[in-house]
Structures are given as C-alpha cells and as structure tokens.
Nucleic acid binder design. Sequence first.
DNA 1: TATAAAATATAGCCAAGGCTAACTAGTTAG
DNA 2: CTAACTAGTTAGCCTTGGCTATATTTTATA
Lengths: 158, 158
Amino acid sequence: MSDYEQQNVPPSSDSGRDALPPVTQHARQYETVRNAHETELIEDYVELIGDLIRHQGEARAADLASRMGVSQATVSKMIRRLKELGLVNSQPYRSLFLTEAGQTMAETSRARHDIVLQFLRALGVRDSTARIDAEGMEHHVSDETLAIMQQFTEKNAR
Amino acid sequence: MSDYEQQNVPPSSDSGRDALPPVTQHARQYETVRNAHETELIEDYVELIGDLIRHQGEARAADLASRMGVSQATVSKMIRRLKELGLVNSQPYRSLFLTEAGQTMAETSRARHDIVLQFLRALGVRDSTARIDAEGMEHHVSDETLAIMQQFTEKNAR
DNA sequence: TATAAAATATAGCCAAGGCTAACTAGTTAG
DNA sequence: CTAACTAGTTAGCCTTGGCTATATTTTATA
Ligand SMILES: [Mn+2]
Ligand SMILES: [Mn+2]
Ligand SMILES: [Mn+2]
Ligand SMILES: [Mn+2]
C-alpha cells in the first residue's frame, strides 16, 4: 500500500552515456567469463607442472602446493581430477608427468601467458605487477586481442 | 621395482628461458587471482544493477537473469547474498535498490570496466570482442596497470 | 636396519554458484 | 473481480575448490 519507492529516476530516454548492450550479447559476455573460469585452474596447474618439469626436472605435489599457495590436500585432490581428465600421469607417491594432451595444454597456456606478460611489460607495467596481472588476465584474453598484444609487443621495444 | 620413469630431463642448469619466480612471489600471484574471483561475481551483479537503474529506471530480478544468462533461481539466491552483504535493499517481489555501499561499488566497478573497455578499443580490438574480454579482464587489472591503460587511451585516439 | 621425518593420500567438512521443480505473490485482461 | 499469466521465491541437488585431521608410504638418518 504505502509506496516504498526510494528513488526511481525514470529512464528519461538516455540517462547515462554508453547504452546497455542487447540482452543476448550481454548474456554472452558473462557466459564467456563463466566458461573461462571452468578451465582456468586446470590450465594453471598443467602449466605449472610443465614449468616445474622444465626448470627442475620433475614436478612434485609439494612444489605445486607451495607455489600455488594451497594445502597439499587440495593439490592431491586436484591431481586426481587432472588424471581423470587425461592430462596427467602418475603413480601414487611419485612425481607427476604430463600426458600428450597435458603437454599440449601446457604449451598453449604458457605461450598465451608469455604473450600477456610481455605485453604488460611493453606497456610499461612493473615486472612484479605484470606477473600478478598476467596470471589472472591470461584466461580472459581472446585470440583476437592476443594477436594484437603480440604485435604491440614486437613493435614497442623489448 | 621396474623403473616407471617416462622422461625426466634433468635440470641441466637452465632448461627454459625465463626462470620460475621465487616461491613466495609465485604463490602471491595465484592468491591474488583467487581473491579476485571471490568478489568478481558480486561486483558484476552490483554493477549491472546500477546500470539497469541508470538505463531503465529500475532493476528487476528477471532482467538480471536474462542479462546474466542465468536462471531466476540463481539470481534470487544471489540477491539474498547481496542483501546480507549490505549492498542491496529490496522488499520481496519488488525491484532492487543499491545501498550506499552498493552504489559506491557499482561506480568503482563501472569506472574500472570502462577504462579497460576503452583501452581495448584504443588498442584496436573490435567492439564486440573488447566487451567480452573486458568483462573478464576488469577483475584482474591492478591499479597500476589501470592507470597505464587510461593514459594509453587518452594518448591514442578515440 | 630401525626409526624419525617428510611427502602423499584420504575422509569429511564447508561455501559458492549453478540447476530444476514446485510454490507463491503481483499484474493484467476479459 | 476473477482467471491467467508473469515474476519472484524456496527447496533440494550437484560440482568445484578450499580447508583440517588422520592415515599411509617413502626417504633419510642415527
Ligand atoms: Mn593463470
Ligand atoms: Mn578470472
Ligand atoms: Mn564489469
Ligand atoms: Mn566482469
């Protein structure tokens, strides 16, 4: 009964600047983000396993835990998932290996990660900040944008 | 007993190019990403509610659902969370309002979102791609990088 | 070579963020 | 003014990705 309205500035045609995107396109934006989040962690783990093998000769669960900043139990559970997904091979209590599919994913992810990182550095972002930002951004950069970043980096300095 | 080793290329000093970051710093990268993911959705909802109010005069749960590409049940649950967090006010079955805190968050998020979007456009990314990428990237861009993006956009065209 | 320590695994708990199905409240048309 | 439709809520289920505590297995050391 009593009107509880608090403000309710009416549309008045064009209140703000940029209009809202069409509903379908808008929904696609968020859907893309949700999809990226589904694979993000998987990619980071696989990429890290690949990096550990390249840099230290082997990947142990304990290294994953300390580098990820997460408990060993969390890593253990994740490794089970990676095996189920056919990305990792290992015997219990032994170090980890990437399957063919895992190696492919690791390479793809690392390449993408590097492009984003180098782009940020080329833009003028400090190295430690660039590393942090790249870790999150890499999963949300389209191929189109990635290509443009790579060109930019090539042109602008090293 | 039998050796199951598959490859195991030893460290050989410097296998790859860029060395791995120190463990603590490396962990901080992933922690930052995890933190961003905790607030991401909240920010997107609040930002969207603000945008709907600005552009259509009110924000209804149904609009949130169609724009987010998600079921009404999901939105309803989220709204309860937003209320618990003190970001949103509403009576059951009525439209949504932002609290003071909610408005502040909406403005901050929108400003950040716009900077990232305009930066991508200035870089040369097509509009529809830029919108998709910005929706995910915005949550992983540090203040430092954001400032640099803004400068870049100002210098480089519109 | 026992035994202590370190690494890995498993169990069980929790919160977030999806979903469908069933129910309830508001709004609109006849 | 009632019936039908639309909008919003609630319940219950699921997966993901954290955690702690407790086993188990390997590895190192006395
Ligand atoms: Mn990452
Ligand atoms: Mn993300
Ligand atoms: Mn946004
Ligand atoms: Mn977003």
